[in-house]
Nucleic acid binder design. Structure first.
Lengths: 236, 236
DNA sequence: CGGCTGCTTGAAGACTCTCAACTTCCGTGG
DNA sequence: CCACGGAAGTTGAGAGTCTTCAAGCAGCCG
């Protein structure tokens, strides 16, 4: 159950201003600022690239930076006390990680792995502290964002604590639905989905088949799912 | 499984300066400030008392305040989509809640219930915003605190996702251990503990009996537990 | 002391996992 | 471009773990 440890290649480091800028302007905690203020922030950022499969940080690593995804995708996962892996979240461009080690002057509690070629902007602790003092609205954004994520995490915990697997899957599918459409592509492999939902790939397979048999969904391809009865799904 | 709804009595409202002050000085996010700054904060706070069993807020309630526990204990719980209850945390004096509704200008996602006679300090959103702008170090404290809680919540989620009940109980017991002592009292009823750990009172009973049979713990009374083999407990 | 609530214990059954075999998909290299 | 190999996904059978239901016991407050 423990994931094989991927090689950590030395990531290539380069500096490009456009990259910095696009990075900063992507992030909700910064992109409410004036153009010139974002320029100031991008001046403190450092851009780093990772190839698919590279580990960005390990649990236990020290770190003094915030990691903002500029391009690509990053997989955040944890290992439990008994060594089993759980997928915590997938980061898309504009999302960030590393806040625990950053604000607690401590080590990472999770693992971050590039699941495709990815470019990351890093902002160092000292630089960020200056920014927070200079622009209090950034702090406010961060606090708002964290309280939202705290809520999501607690919602997820409550689901694990009280719902059975089929319900957790059904709720997940319902949340994947964008407005206007009944159809979507799974945002991750079913193996990762199993890890995210605290179950096994076998169970995911079987439960999706069950939901299809009940006429609630239709699996068009392995990745693509059509929701036929959203209300029914929410009552599973 | 759905908890019977307790009556929400009109809480008695009173104003006492000592109460305010002790409240503010209890809280890690404020008590690093100067005496006079804490006085300023306590000037904006409002003190409210709740009797044992009273509901402080419901999921869905609107709210524009931070709730800081001054005296007593508060039980924070959530209802899952299917109506089952999960205990999220117990607040002791100096701890606070209500941040989600506060910072997202939204409604509460959880329930808060006084489990003994409790006195609460409330700080309104507008007042808090002024404080955050005036004293950026408060923002920094809050961000640090939230990232810590986020980590705890994700650790808990990972445990639910990957560990079986016996392991979750063992880890919980290990965390209850204070330094120097092998013995402690459970911080809540076994019914609440079951809810917190995502299981049933019956299973808690049985697993504690199992752990005792394995020679890892000893149940001295219903509330009091002695840990005989901490390492063994962590390897369950 | 009564009654309520919480706790414990037993038995049955549901749900999910594990293991194993097979199929499908996809990227790589020839 | 096709073929290959490995990973991901599916399906079946069996085994565990945990819940549910039921009944009895214990502790606590009026």
């Amino acid at each position: 159950m423990v994931r094989k440890e991927a090689h950590t290649h030395q990531p290539c480091v380069h500096h490009t201003n456009e990259t910095h800028h696009s990075c900063v302007s992507l992030v909700p905690i910064f992109n409410h600022l004036e153009e010139e203020q974002m320029d100031e922030i991008m001046g403190t950022a450092r851009s780093v690239s990772f190839k698919k499969g590279e580990i960005i940080y390990h649990a236990g690593d020290e770190s003094d930076s915030l990691y903002i995804v500029n391009k690509g995708k990053v997989r955040i996962y944890r290992l439990s006390e008994s060594g089993k892996e759980q997928l915590v979240r997938i980061l898309n461009p504009g999302e960030y990680t590393g806040e625990y080690a950053l604000f607690n002057e401590s080590t990472h509690e999770s693992y971050a792995e590039a699941i495709m070629n990815t470019s990351i902007c890093m902002i160092r602790r000292t630089d960020l502290q200056h920014l927070l003092l200079k622009y209090p609205s950034i702090s406010f954004k961060i606090i708002t964002e964290f309280s939202k994520r705290l809520d999501q995490s607690e919602t997820q915990t409550t689901r694990f604590a009280t719902e059975k697997v089929e319900t957790r899957i059904a709720l997940f599918l319902a949340e994947c639905l964008e407005d206007e459409s009944n159809e979507f592509s799974l945002p991750m492999s079913k193996k990762d989905l199993a890890s995210y939902l605290g179950t096994t790939p076998e169970t995911i397979s079987r439960k999706l088949a069950d939901l299809e048999e009940q006429g609630l969904i239709k699996q068009k391809t392995h990745k693509r799912i059509e929701v036929l009865d959203l209300d029914g799904l929410l009552f599973v």
